[in-house]
């Protein structure tokens, strides 16, 4: 059980390299295809896979992920369906992290959601519209099911608050690199390094950077500064075009070592 609990932490800790976390949307473009894509990504050399549960009003997401979510919903994806996708992909052995907005969890029943996620072999959960003040009782149910609860720090988060967020996080700490929503950007913002070193003061957990990361030069810039990078919209865009994102992952991985 201890080993299970440390799964994400161990998988994401850098070892002279930068770990890569890929993101895909459950049910995008439809359920069967997203399971196929997830299985391929699982074997592509990534350290973990984030699987998004689609939501009608994704406040933290940019146009690419929003559109993927709308397509998934239009093709009948549900919370239950997303857990089935997660289960099929987790069976490949890759640590799976669910990314979901809070309302689908509340309506599904947080206790049931936690138990079913654990049963599906999920390692942790990220809820982007659940700041630490609102975390309980949902986070409690997740912890009780031995799931990691990953919280985010943002460029606008003051230092004392960073410390509190780190103390709530397990598995890893998610550093949002940009003041904004998800979506590939040409360049990563300046001032990112200060955020990473501030977060590093408060936790021994692996740090992962996310939002806007999509290119080899981003990987090079991040390697050595934190443990992992999350690539989302760029992969979802590949899936939208009929691909599976594996070629992109392999190309990015070259810059991670």
């Amino acid at each position: 059980m201890v080993a299970e609990r440390l799964r994400l932490e161990n998988a994401l800790r850098a070892d002279g390299d930068l770990k890569l976390v890929a993101y895909m949307m459950a049910g995008h473009p439809h359920k069967k295809r997203s399971i196929e894509v997830g299985r391929r990504l699982a074997g592509s050399g990534i350290a973990a896979l984030e699987i998004g549960i689609p939501h009608s009003d994704p406040l933290a997401d940019g146009p690419v992920i929003q559109k993927a979510g709308q397509e998934a919903l239009a093709n009948g994806m549900t919370v239950e369906g997303a857990l089935e996708v997660a289960k099929a992909v987790a069976a490949e052995g890759v640590p799976v992290v669910l990314m979901t907005y809070i309302n689908p969890v509340l309506q599904h029943d947080p206790r049931k959601f936690a138990a079913e996620s654990a049963q599906a072999g999920v390692a942790g959960v990220i809820v982007p519209d659940l700041p630490i003040e609102e975390a309980e009782p949902v986070a409690g149910w997740l912890r009780a099911a031995s799931l990691d609860t990953i919280f985010m720090v943002a460029p606008t988060t003051p230092p004392d608050r960073i410390a509190t967020i780190c103390s709530h996080s397990t598995g890893f700490v998610y550093c949002v690199t940009v003041t904004g929503i998800t979506g590939a950007r040409k360049e990563l913002p300046e001032g990112m390094d200060e955020l990473f070193s501030e977060v590093r003061k408060h936790t021994q957990l692996p740090l992962a950077a996310g939002f806007g990361i999509s290119r080899q030069e981003h990987m090079k810039a991040l390697r050595g500064k934190l443990d992992a990078a999350v690539v989302g919209s760029a992969i979802v865009d590949e899936i939208e075009r009929g691909g599976d994102g594996v070629a992109l992952v392999r190309e990015l991985l070259k810059a991670c070592r």
Binding site: P128, P131, M152, A154, T156, T157, P158
Partner: peptide, 12 residues
Amino acid sequence: GGQYVPETLMSA
């Protein structure tokens, strides 16, 4: 009520 928003908005 409450504040169910991304972390980026919390300090604002």
